[in-house]
Structures are given as C-alpha cells and as structure tokens.
Design a protein around this nucleic acid. Structure first.
Lengths: 187, 187
DNA sequence: TCGCACATGTAACGCGTTACATGATTAC
DNA sequence: GTAATCATGTAACGCGTTACATGTGCGA
C-alpha cells in the first residue's frame, strides 16, 4: 500500500511553511531534515511540475528582480487540504534496512578488529550529527520561538539527539564486547 | 554508489550459518532480523537463482525424503569469500526516510489531538517490539550460547532494545508536549 | 579567469514491493 | 473437507538514485 510517493507531501509540507524555490527546498532539507528525510533532485523537480499541474501548488516566476531562472512556488488552498488529509492519516510502518546491522549480524565470519574499525567510524559520524543537531537546536530557539512550528521542530531535534545518544552508547557496548572477543582469542 | 543490491549478501550471510531453503530464510528473517532487515519474495527467489548461477551457493534438491519441491541451499567457498569481502567493507551510510518524523515536522498544520493519536499507536507498536525482543533474547541465551554467532546476535538484540526504549521515552515526551499545546489552546 | 554556489531539469537504470499463480501437506 | 502453513516462483510497476546537461552570478 506504500505505493504513492511521499515526495509530494514533503513538498506540500515545506510550502506550508512559506513560499520557496526547488533549490530552497533542497537547502532546507539538507540543513533541517536530512537525519530523517531527504529527497534527490530527480524526485524533487518532476514532482514540483506534477503538483503544479494538479493545482496543489502555484508557481510565480520572479520576473520582477533580474529575471533569473528562479521559480518561487507557493501552496494553494487545495494543496493545503491535501496536506492536512495526509497528516491526519496513520503513518505507515515502513520496512527498515540497516546495512550496519546486517553486517554485524554476520560478523562472526570475520575477525573482530574489522568490525571494531567500522564501529569507530560510525561512532565518529554519530558524534558530528550530535554536534550539528545541538547547534541547530540553539539556532531554532533563537530564531523561531514564536512560530507555531517551533514545538514540532524542537521535538524532531529532540528525537535526533536522544536516538543518536542511544546509538552512541550502544556503539560503545559493541566496541567493548568486540575487544573482549579479541583478547580472548589471543590468550 | 549504493547500486548493488544487498539481498545477495543477506542470503550469503544466512547460508554462512548453515544450509537453508528460501522459505527458511524468510522465516529466520521474520523472527530474527525484521527490526533491522527484511527481504520480499520478489527479491529473494530470483537472487537465489542468480547466486547459484554464479557458483556462490549450491542447491541440493531434497530428493532423498519424499520429493517435495523443497530446495536446500548451501554456501560455497567462493560464496564465503564474497561474503567476507563485503563484511570487511565500510557499511554505506544510507539515506533515511522516516514518515512519522516527516509528519511530525509539519504537524503545526493539524490539531494536536490527531498527532497524539498517531503517537499512542506508535508507542504501542514499540512496546510489542520490545516484548518480542526480550523473548528472543531469552531464547537466544538458552539455545545459542555456544555458537560463535552468539555475541553478534546478542548485540543486535541489544540495539533493538536500547533504541526502542529511547524511542519510547521520546514518544512520551512528544505526547506530553502535544497535550500541553492542547490545554493551552483551550484556555 | 577560475571555481564555487546558485538554479533547474532529464534520462537511464536498477531496486524492491505487490499481487498473482500454483500446488503440496498438515491439523482440526 | 477446508483452512492454514509450507514452498517456490513470476510479472508489473513505480520509486528513487545517479549521472548527465546547462547556464548564471559572484567573489578571490
């Protein structure tokens, strides 16, 4: 049943915040949602055209300034209705595919040192995500505190922080366990 | 670069544990890895044929008993080499797409009650996953303690437990925050 | 003037899900 | 006898990524 692409709703959602260009959407997603949602160009631009054709969004080419190719989109009434309809529906529980976990599950086939390296890299990646989230949280509490979106955005950041911290703790457990296997193998 | 399907490695990995039928793989995945990895029939069976054609796995039709259609596969030497090669490679950091989070991010557009319902459902789902993981952990410590896979399988379960608990705590935070918004709106 | 960020799009291609198709065996 | 489980497969279809294509404006 997960047939219909969610790209359209990601776009409608972003435009519910305010008018924006396709490029602007990419920027926002890269800086704010990348740890739980992202879109590629190949999805984004064609979907913008489709939504405009359906009348869910409108395009106002910025001819007023200096006629760059820039296209600014905004959400229409029917677009907002569609978005609200989707938001009211129960989120589908998606099938997960975590390669790191799949590898760990079969890692009895390789020496523990190999796995330890992977997890040290992973730990480092988690750390930089945590730093990034912390600075986004700071920024948010300064710039958006009055917005109706604020509590919701704050909750998503909270998710990122809590889950990443939990993953990091688990990472430490993994590294510790694997190191014990190594020393047991040596003795 | 994430072009090559990981289905083949999931299969090779399962066969590194022991000989198994396609159906058997489905069972194992459903019971042991579904919270971090799953395969659909449409991926599984064609990939089995491809791997057999490449000589990475072998098929021994169980003609000895009562000639059911059952096919038992086992991994070959070159298959094991391929698996180890993959395990040694750094896991790719995959792009995440979490619909629950995407909805939350835009939920200022709907009333908080709607979101609260979604999160109560989600919380319930997390709870049953936790129960399932706890019983799997019990089973594992009784049946597989001697296996070289044991520490690795235990770590994956630990992941499931820790992350699900963190998600549940966050869930409580979300529900609590949304309820405060509701009561503020009423006053 | 060179390279980067801005800015929009298209085409190819493989992946993965869903639904369909088929049939045997077992338990009630 | 009939429903559920065991068991294997195929075909259609859309989704999403990657790479390609193109061009502007700006700062070093």
């Amino acid at each position: 049943m997960s047939k219909t692409s969610k790209t359209q709703f990601a776009i409608l959602g972003l435009l519910s915040i305010g008018p924006m260009s396709g490029y602007g959407m990419r920027q926002v997603m890269q800086h704010s949602t990348s740890y739980f949602w992202s879109e590629s160009d190949g999805q984004l631009y064609p979907t913008l055209s489709k939504l405009a054709a359906k009348g869910l969004i409108e395009c106002k080419p910025k001819a007023d300034k200096n006629t760059r190719d820039k296209k600014e989109y905004s959400i229409t009434k029917s677009g907002l209705t569609e978005l609200k309809k989707w938001l009211a529906q129960k989120p589908e529980t998606q099938t997960v595919r975590n390669e790191l976990m799949l590898k760990l599950f079969f890692s009895a086939n390789v020496n523990p040192e190999t796995s330890i390296e992977h997890f040290q890299t992973y730990r480092y990646e988690l750390k930089s995500l945590l730093n990034q989230l912390a600075s986004t949280e700071q920024q948010l509490s300064h710039e958006e505190k009055q917005s109706s979106h604020y509590p919701y955005w704050k909750l998503t950041i909270e998710y990122g922080l809590l889950i990443s911290q939990a993953k990091m703790q688990w990472c430490d457990l993994v590294i510790d366990t694997l190191q014990k296997i190594t020393s047991r193998e040596l003795s």
